[in-house]
Design a protein around this nucleic acid. Structure first.
Lengths: 313, 313
DNA sequence: GTGAAAGCGCTAACAC
DNA sequence: GTGTTAGCGCTTTCAC
């Protein structure tokens, strides 16, 4: 195992000078740099990452906790995080959680042991309260509204855009509207935001029959569509939780030969774009990039990012 | 930042004794252990992971390079890897690659810098030759047959089971058979294995028209089904690349009101099980677990694991 | 059963 | 511009 001392000895310079050329610092003459790089190349030397981390007191790596990667929310977030990490010369590692509290705790403990400089939670099983406690051991960044907890976060301003969407529907005299979501009202802040926006705009509670949860895939959307298509009292508009899902729903209506209601998708996916389905783009890639920036910033804060209602998709 | 010296000083013992209790070693009296643990708890101390890594010359973490997690192949592998890692007290980190050579190179360089003890490639964009070269810098484990390259690997014995499947079909006098795969023959070893098994059993080349590639989702399977259902010369059996896909295909045939051919799925998914569709279970979870074991073993080797043809699913 | 001390490989003051 | 050296926080001989 060749180390920096070997390079110093063989090049005839000191370890500090070698360190300088390794870290592309100034105050090294061209000749010296050349001499040292020659030896480095000859010996095929690379500095030991662990030693660097210990010495500089930072790992330059951020852990990204995420349940799973099969939803556009996570993939878009991840792309944003990776892009920003690359730009800042940070490494990112994915920490799969499946919303498992035990696993999440393991990652928090790893943070506490300085295995990572910070943790980004794209979602979480553990209560926010618990996450907040671990802040004393290291930076923790959320990708959702932290509400009462003082945690740095970058998140999409969901409610405002949902309000905008329902206002649009109301102006067009839609009165019977359904909402599709992935997780139940009780546990999901997103579902709550959607329903809350509806109630704010329409000044009445949403009938439980018009809230359809458990929708994840386009196929689920299709099933929901089959159900709604045969209602005696049809809905005229549906806020779905994804363009793919809206497309699935549309298909069911077409198959049932019923007039397709006004569908609004989310996440601005390709599937919706080709069919010109209105959508809400939460710009999760931007959210991810900002989350990464917060993770490495000196001044953590909470940032609400604007989402966008796209009618003429 | 409290460190091991603080604990030593405040407990009245030496750092080496503290280190012993941290590492659950023997040769520490019960009283000493108690005293030291009291101080540790009082100060809420945890040892610094980076320092431990440097000192012991190992990180106890394995990097898992994977393109993306939205396919049962990867999720099953990952579960196996995680289970084995947990048992061995190793950490695993996911390194997303999207088959991007640049990214894969970055991870190989990280291995070289001892950021991880080993790398498991669940798939790769870089040629095997390149991966083989990096072995001199650290352990690299594949999840596919390394063929001519001397790389440790755990992988499913695909061909034998495909041969078994086609033999089954031949015995039942199926003569017109289609094959569905995700990636083209030229780039995919899996596709090659399927087609190769067909040709071995039937002693003739597969008509290009009966090889349908680019199939990833159940929806793709449905599209393929729509196509095959309207052929004037219908196929009587199809080897698909997933139970979900077989299910999608089945649906298309039913919709077209054509007799459904004998479909064989892969990966033993729930969707196929409920419909009793024959399948090939590659036991990727076992493959993943073995890959992790190879990653941390003293004696790396290449292991072919048996896959299983399940007719009465 | 416990302690002293020499590393592990690097960075960053500080001196020259 | 370059060198000396004291850490970073821990593990691990080797004594006792």
């Amino acid at each position: 195992m060749t180390n920096i001392h070997d390079i110093a000895r063989l090049s005839g310079y000191s370890v500090s000078t070698v360190s300088r050329v390794l870290n592309h610092q100034n105050y090294v003459s061209a000749k010296t740099r050349g001499d040292i790089e020659a030896v480095i190349n000859k010996l095929d030397y690379v500095p030991n990452a662990v030693a660097r981390n210990l010495s500089r007191g930072a790992t330059l790596t951020i852990g990204v906790v995420l349940p799973h990667v099969d939803h556009p929310y996570f993939t878009q977030l991840l792309h944003g995080i990776m892009r920003a990490a690359f730009a800042a010369n940070y490494h990112i590692v994915l920490l799969p959680s499946k919303w498992d509290s035990q696993l999440e705790l393991k990652y928090l403990e790893a943070l506490r042991q300085h295995a990572y400089d910070a943790l980004i939670f794209t979602s979480h099983g553990l209560p926010l309260k618990k996450l907040a406690v671990y802040q004393r051991y290291g930076r923790i960044v959320l990708c959702e509204n932290p509400h009462d907890y003082s945690l740095p976060a970058a998140y999409a301003q969901r409610t405002a855009t949902y309000v905008e969407a329902f206002t649009y529907l109301k102006q067009r005299h839609h009165q019977r509207i359904a909402i599709l979501t992935s997780r139940p009202l009780e546990v999901s802040a997103t579902t709550q935001a959607m329903v809350g926006a509806y109630e704010q705009v329409y000044q009445r509670t949403l009938s439980p029959k018009l809230l359809y949860t458990g929708i994840i895939t386009a196929e689920d959307g299709e099933h929901a569509g089959t159900y709604f298509a045969q209602l005696t009292e049809p809905v005229t508009a549906v806020l779905t939780n994804g363009d793919d899902i809206a497309v699935g729903m549309r298909r069911a209506y077409l198959a049932a030969q019923r007039p397709v209601p006004l569908l609004i998708g989310q996440e601005h996916q390709l599937s919706g774009e080709v069919l010109g389905i209105p959508t809400i783009d939460h710009h999760f890639e931007v959210v991810g990039a900002r989350a990464l920036e917060l993770a490495i910033s000196e001044h953590p804060q909470s940032i609400a990012l604007p989402a966008e209602l796209i009618i003429n998709n």
